Computed example of a mutant assay.
Amino acid sequence: MSAAEHAAAVRRYLDELAQQRRLSPHTVSGYQRDLAVLARLLGELPGEPGFAALQPQHVRRFVGRLHADGLGGRSLARTLSAWRGFYRWLGRQGDVQRNPVDGVRAPKRPQALPKALSPDEAHCLLDAQSDDLLEIRDQAIFELFYSSGLRLAELAALDVSCLPDIADGEVRVRGKRSKLRIVPVGSKARAAVTAWVEQRSRLAPADEQALFVGRRGQRLGLRMIQLRLQRRGLLQDLPAHVHPHMLRHSFASHVLQSSGDLRAVQEMLGHASIASTQVYTHLDFQHLAKVYDQAHPRARRKPEPAS
């Protein structure tokens, strides 16, 4: 298989991920980078090997090299997952007989827990008041992050069509794999969004659908949202670098601490697995099991007395 045929196969696979499995452009881009690394490493094998020439020992050697070059366990696991999925697809196409990535695992990594603001730090961040137009917009953005636990891409994708839902105290977003979920919007966030909408026409042209726009009246980009939040954190003298995912995590942690309702938090975050929520909320498994035992009907049922 020539280099051009290699590239064509990768393009077909990525097109299938985007069009049939409906993965986000960000995820598809990550697969593309990982498969480019695979193609580069394959090119170092003797001769002109095709995808079928790859053997498990080659994959292990590649992983060792990438790890020695500084790639961490989490990144290696993601890379191997991309390679494994691609070879699974090649198998369905009849291009390979076996998956050489099966059974190869990334080095174990310590589980890094995401950082959260304390409730006092969250109040400090959000209590800043300003009459500046961009600060009014930013306030609505930050309040929504903290009120509803939205991901950065979810918030940036909001259109003005969501305003009736926000007025009713909820917002509908499409998360990973285009999964729709509905999350509540608190009174502070609703008030902040209303204040922004009253000023939005000063920046946005009449035909612009994006809820949040920049100076030029176009949809606000992800990087700009990150920078504006970082700036607010620095202005408020917060001790840690503040970023959107930190507000999402703070939302989850604070709601769970107040309510103890793990399943509700899982639903609001859009997690497919409760294990994701376990890590995300700084809970150990024993506490998770206790919450589950208290909440599940059959777990709560007392055993019948022995006759």
Rank of each mutant, 00 (worst) to 15 (best):
H58C: 12
R11K: 12
E143Y: 01
A206E: 09
R263P: 10
V183F: 03
M224S: 15
Q55I: 04
K188A: 13
V173K: 09
R219F: 07
R202G: 08
L71S: 14
A116Q: 11
E121R: 02
A112I: 11
F251V: 04
Q97K: 08
H6N: 15
R12P: 00
P49A: 10
Q209I: 03
Q111K: 13
L66T: 06
L247I: 00
S178C: 09
W196E: 07
Q199F: 07
L211K: 00
A204G: 10
G50T: 01
A195T: 02
Y87V: 07
S307N: 13
A157Q: 05
H6P: 14
L90C: 12
R92I: 08
A156G: 10
Q266I: 08
V63D: 08
R228M: 12
V265K: 04
E121T: 00
F212W: 05
G50C: 10
D131Y: 00
H282E: 08
A264S: 13
P184A: 13
E135T: 13
F86M: 03
A191E: 11
K188V: 08
V101E: 03
V213E: 06
G217S: 04
D284V: 09
L80Q: 06
C124K: 11
Q19K: 15
L262M: 12
A295G: 03
H296F: 00
F145L: 04
A7E: 14
Q266M: 11
L125K: 01
P100E: 10
E135S: 13
P244D: 11
D293V: 06
Q57C: 14
T194W: 08
S75V: 05
A195Q: 05
Q20C: 07
K290F: 15
S130N: 12
T194E: 15
V171Q: 02
A68V: 09
E304L: 08
A189Q: 06
R84M: 13
W196T: 04
A153C: 14
A272V: 13
K302P: 10
P184Q: 07
S258N: 14
A156M: 04
I182T: 15
Q266V: 10
A68S: 11
R232E: 02
D207S: 15
S24D: 02
W83G: 06
L80D: 11
Q57E: 14
R109T: 12
H6C: 12
D15V: 06
Y31S: 08
V183Q: 05
R33V: 05
R301G: 11
L229D: 00
A240Y: 03
L66W: 01
V10Q: 10
A128L: 02
L222W: 00
G43F: 01
A7N: 12
Q32M: 10
H296P: 01
H271S: 13
Q32R: 14
H123T: 10
H245K: 07
A8E: 13
L76G: 11
V28E: 12
